[in-house]
Computed example of a mutant assay.
Amino acid sequence: MFYPKYRLRRLRRTENLRRLIRETQLSVDHLIYPLFVVPGKDRREEISTMPGCYRFSLDKLRSEIKEIEDLGIPAVLFFGIPSQKDEVGSEAYADKGIIQEAIRATKEVSSDLIVITDVCLCEYTSHGHCGIPKNGEIDNDSTLEILSSVALSQVRAGADMVAPSDMMDGRVAAIRERLDEEGYSHIPIMSYAAKYCSGFYGPFREAAESAPRFGDRRSHQMDPPNSDEAMREIAQDIEEGADIVMVKPALAYLDIIYRAKSEFGYPLAAYNVSGEYSMIKAAAAKNWIDEKRIVLEILTSIKRAGADMILTYFARDVARWLA
């Protein structure tokens, strides 16, 4: 019977052999933990559609931040639910807005944890859209001034990085120009460069109270069948001054992550979004899957596809597992 001289199984026999030749390494260093903050006091509310995730008031946020830092997670991404909403999302750029206060509260606890802020309007507007509606459509250019004001307000409060997620054309350039003019040229921009109009966002919209009151977001978020368009979006954001580009969602768009890394070689983030999280949680609750094994397999696949960093609601659990 013929056997090949090179038997691939030879290096799979033991865990230490597998460790020696492991090509992709998942580390706590690669994780960004998204958090939801709300007004009030003594609020730690579990999100019904995202078991294990919570909305925190500022007093509860401080202890959460300390735990995150102790786990070695290097960065958090904040989403805020304001006390009131209006047509232009003015609470998003208010000096004492929920995100601005969350940034200050975090910096009181940790000077090292990287605070990234979501720059968008959907959580703050009465209509729930990412931009300003005019005549039944989202007006791109009038939204840019507001977005740059949001980013500036967050950075003044102490944000270490801003992450525009609105998908308006030209938002990276508008934010970069505004930050540079105000003396914040050192602040990086993580752009949601290829953000698809996905069904995987459902649980997040409940968590952030950000579902649109009319219509949908197909006019500005990307059409899921498109791949070449994603490369154009990424190229444009890089040209406008993005320091990190993001693909969102991650699991259904591994091919986009791979293409983006291969074609641009740029620092690349991938968002393991709420729907991906909640499906795993639901299946694990039914004992249909091994949650830890599946989570690590999925996050490793995202890393293997080319992501340098992963935004995931599993970050706390993964940090413990990897430790």
Rank of each mutant, 00 (worst) to 15 (best):
Y3L: 11
K5I: 12
K5M: 11
Y6N: 10
R7N: 11
R13H: 01
N16L: 14
L17H: 10
R19I: 12
R19W: 10
L20I: 07
R22P: 01
L26E: 03
L31T: 13
I32D: 12
P34G: 03
V37F: 00
V37S: 01
P39W: 00
G40W: 00
M50P: 08
G52V: 00
G52A: 03
G52D: 01
C53F: 10
S57V: 02
R62D: 04
E64L: 02
E64G: 01
E67P: 00
E69T: 13
D70P: 04
L71Q: 09
P74W: 13
G80N: 02
I81H: 12
I81L: 14
P82M: 04
S83N: 12
A92P: 09
Y93F: 15
Y93S: 08
A94M: 06
K96Y: 13
K96R: 14
I98T: 09
I99T: 04
T106V: 04
T106E: 03
V109I: 15
S110R: 11
S111G: 15
D112H: 13
L113W: 12
I114L: 14
V115H: 13
C120K: 06
L121F: 01
L121S: 07
E123S: 02
Y124S: 06
T125E: 04
I132A: 10
I132T: 09
I132E: 10
P133I: 01
N135A: 14
I138E: 04
I146A: 01
S153A: 14
S153I: 03
Q154I: 01
R156P: 00
G158Q: 05
D160I: 02
A163G: 12
A163W: 08
S165A: 11
S165K: 02
S165V: 05
D166I: 03
D166L: 02
R171N: 06
E177L: 10
E177F: 06
E177Q: 14
L179Q: 13
D180S: 15
G183W: 06
S185L: 02
P188K: 09
M190Q: 15
A193G: 01
A193D: 00
A193C: 03
A193K: 03
A194M: 03
A194V: 06
K195T: 05
K195A: 04
Y196P: 06
S198A: 08
S198P: 02
Y201Q: 06
P203Y: 10
E206Y: 15
A208W: 09
E209D: 10
S210A: 15
F214H: 11
G215P: 12
D216L: 06
R217T: 04
H220I: 05
D223F: 14
P224V: 09
N226A: 03
S227N: 13
S227W: 05
S227P: 00
E229A: 12
R232L: 06
R232S: 05
Q236W: 07
I238M: 10
I244A: 00
K248G: 08
P249V: 02
L251C: 08
A252K: 01
I256S: 07
Y258G: 13
Y258R: 15
E263N: 10
P267H: 08
P267M: 11
A270L: 06
N272G: 00
V273N: 06
S274M: 06
G275C: 09
S278P: 13
M279G: 00
K286T: 02
N287S: 14
D290G: 03
E291Y: 08
L299M: 02
T300D: 00
I302W: 07
K303R: 15
D308F: 12
M309A: 05
T312W: 09
T312L: 08
R316I: 00
D317F: 04
A319D: 07
A323W: 04
A323M: 08
